[in-house]
């Protein structure tokens, strides 16, 4: 993918803006007054438990779901009136595999290019370019079932680039991939971002969010409950380090630190300087414990609760 076609970054160049964005389904308020601003060239994450409103936001950005209230622009356009123009300039990477099972890799991309208005010859050339980009030129005649999960994902990513999109909407892009394939996808996405693409990433994978996102929103029940850069959010909600202590034995946690008990485990969030004090206290009462760095998963769980939701 050439990077030359993308405009230079500019702080006030916003690819998505939302103000007071709402979406109701009958009595259910799926998105309840969300404000967000995604800058060109950044990877912006949407995090939240199931039902938090991530998918509804993505679909409103994709201009397939009308908004109930509020303002929304995508690439400076109004999804309510300019859906086709918006979709002509964005790429969508769905959760799971929706390639055409009866078509070869080449034809999957070629026919998709035609949906964006490419002529027959142009579509054929574009599909070849993309297969090369996905390093799957030698598998061009294979059907999806003949390819590995990682290869299919690469084709889906390539397909989202068929229109030289400026903005990619990614929904759980690495779910069900093996670790090698996941890392490959991450490397790829970082490369696209360096080329100037903007990414809107929906994920449950906190490791993925931490690696890829410049900034993110944590949503719960349709509302924004936290926003910021991953390191800042970790610092703010989970301090620097975490001690996990299996419950069952009574332990008086010092008041100076924040802690939570869920599912039989106590999580203590603290600054590095407090490490000696805490481990000393734990050793004194003879409790086994684990120390690790705080991560985005701690933030997510602290903010949205450790109990599983459906």
């Amino acid at each position: 993918m050439s990077s030359s076609s993308y405009a230079p970054l500019s702080m006030d160049d916003l690819v998505i803006t939302a103000a007071g964005l709402k979406r109701r389904f009958g009595a259910l308020v799926a998105v309840d007054g969300v404000d967000l601003a995604v800058e060109r060239g950044e990877c912006f994450g949407l995090l939240g438990p199931n039902g938090a409103g991530k998918t509804s936001i993505t679909r409103m950005v994709q201009a397939v779901l009308p908004r109930t209230e509020g303002a929304l622009t995508v690439l400076g356009l109004d999804p309510g009136r300019q859906g086709a123009e918006i979709r002509a300039r964005i790429g969508v990477v769905p959760q799971g595999d929706n390639l055409d099972p009866d078509l070869s890799a080449q034809m999957n991309l070629q026919i998709y290019a035609r949906f964006f208005g490419a002529g027959a010859r142009e579509a054929e050339i574009r599909a070849r370019e993309l297969l090369e980009f996905a390093r799957l030129s030698d598998r061009s005649e294979d059907r999806p079932a003949q390819l590995s999960g990682g290869m299919r994902r690469r084709i889906i990513l390539a397909r989202a680039m068929v229109n030289r999109s400026e903005l990619l909407l990614l929904d759980e892009p690495t779910t069900a991939l093996d670790p090698q394939a996941r890392h490959q996808v991450w490397t790829w996405l970082k490369g696209l971002k360096e080329d100037g693409l903007s990414l809107l990433l929906t994920t449950h994978d906190m490791d993925e969010a931490e690696r890829l996102c410049d900034r993110l929103l944590v949503l719960d029940q349709g509302r924004v409950i936290a926003e910021g850069r991953p390191p800042d959010l970790i610092r703010r909600y989970a301090k620097e380090q975490v001690i996990e202590v299996d419950a069952g034995t009574h332990w008086e946690v010092p008041e100076a630190v924040q802690c939570e008990t869920h599912g039989g485990t106590t999580y203590v969030y603290f600054e590095r300087a407090q490490l000696g004090l805490l481990t000393g206290a734990l050793t004194a009462v003879g409790l086994p414990y684990r120390v690790r760095s705080a991560n985005l998963e701690d933030v997510f769980l602290r903010l949205t609760g450790r109990d599983l939701r459906t």
Binding site: Q62, V64, G83, A84, E85, R87, A88, G91, V92, P94, N98, L99, D100, Y112, F115, F116, G117, N163
Partner: peptide, 9 residues
């Protein structure tokens, strides 16, 4: 799903 992610409605 794949088709409505393009300009086609």
């Amino acid at each position: 799903e794949a088709m409505i992610a393009t300009p086609i409605s």
